[in-house]
């Protein structure tokens, strides 16, 4: 009886992985759809992602979306090394599988590091942050253009500068710096920060799990488990999960950062 179960699992392992991924895709879909619905609800005050994610390491100035573009490249690249590991497994080439798996793990760590950097800058925010003015309007500052206040309302940008800006800051009700779950300097809604932390965090946790699973499989490859077993189906299953993580990022990239 026990044997029968195990052989069934082995034969159907890939299919079970697929069905798990379908359910996981539904979870991510729900998160992104909730994001979309609430963004449409608060469209007047929702920040434009191009104004929020503007940092790039070692570059002083605004380079909107370049960094997330780089993160996308890193993840796609690690997806390629993963699929090459699976391909090497089909050729029963243990050494190549090990090399490609190793590179996939490196790619995974690079992505996690990038995300940590991204989170740091999102939480830390700009030097001056944003102000809630006495009339209730929400005004952002820009480190590169000191003394100016930027007010977004109904997709219209108003700029206040000079003495008027100084007066507005002096009479402001509140100064918000960076982001947390209650408020953020990017827009007058906590939802933007909440969705950022939840969606990219949930995805980042998936990447982290993927890296852990990849390391386990990598050790198995190095110790020759799959050479003895005669096939690399386990590598294929891990590969499915890893590609799925890449796939989710493609959607997060579009719907969180681009649109």
């Amino acid at each position: 009886m026990g044997w029968w179960y195990f052989s069934l699992w082995r034969k159907l392992g890939k299919m079970f992985m697929w069905f798990f991924l379908v359910s996981d895709a539904f979870t991510f879909s729900s998160l992104l759809i909730a994001y979309g619905a609430l963004r449409h609800r608060f469209t007047d005050i929702w920040p434009a992602p191009g104004d929020v994610f503007t940092h790039f390491p070692f570059i002083h100035g605004h380079v909107p979306l370049a960094y997330v573009g780089l993160m996308t490249f890193i993840l796609i690249m690690s997806s390629v090394t993963m699929v090459l590991a699976v391909d090497a497994g089909h050729r029963r080439d243990n050494k190549s599988v090990a090399v490609w798996m190793g590179l996939t793990i490196v790619g995974g760590f690079m992505f996690l590091g990038s995300q940590a950097w991204e989170w740091y800058h999102f939480i830390h925010g700009s030097e001056k942050g944003a102000y809630i003015l006495s009339d209730g309007r929400f005004a952002r500052t820009d480190d590169l253009e000191p003394g100016k206040l930027f007010i977004w309302q109904n997709h219209q940008k108003t700029i206040i500068e000079g003495a008027e800006a100084e007066k507005a800051i002096a009479t402001s009700v509140k100064n918000i710096k960076g982001a947390n779950l209650i408020e953020n300097e990017y827009g007058n809604t906590p939802l933007f920060g909440n969705f950022f932390f939840f969606i990219t965090g949930f995805h980042g946790f998936h990447v982290f799990s993927g890296v852990v699973i990849n390391i386990i499989i990598f050790i198995n490859v190095l110790t020759g488990v799959y050479t003895r077993r005669g096939h690399y189906e386990q590598v294929e299953k891990t590969g499915l999960y890893w590609h799925f993580v890449d796939l989710v990022w493609v959607f997060v990239f579009t719907f969180f950062y681009l649109v």
């Binding site: 997806s79 993963m82 699929v83 590969g239 499915l240 590609h243 799925f244 890449d246 796939l247 493609v250």
Partner: peptide
Amino acid sequence: GYIVGIFM
């Protein structure tokens, strides 16, 4: 489509 069709 490319990720699911080719990579997966």
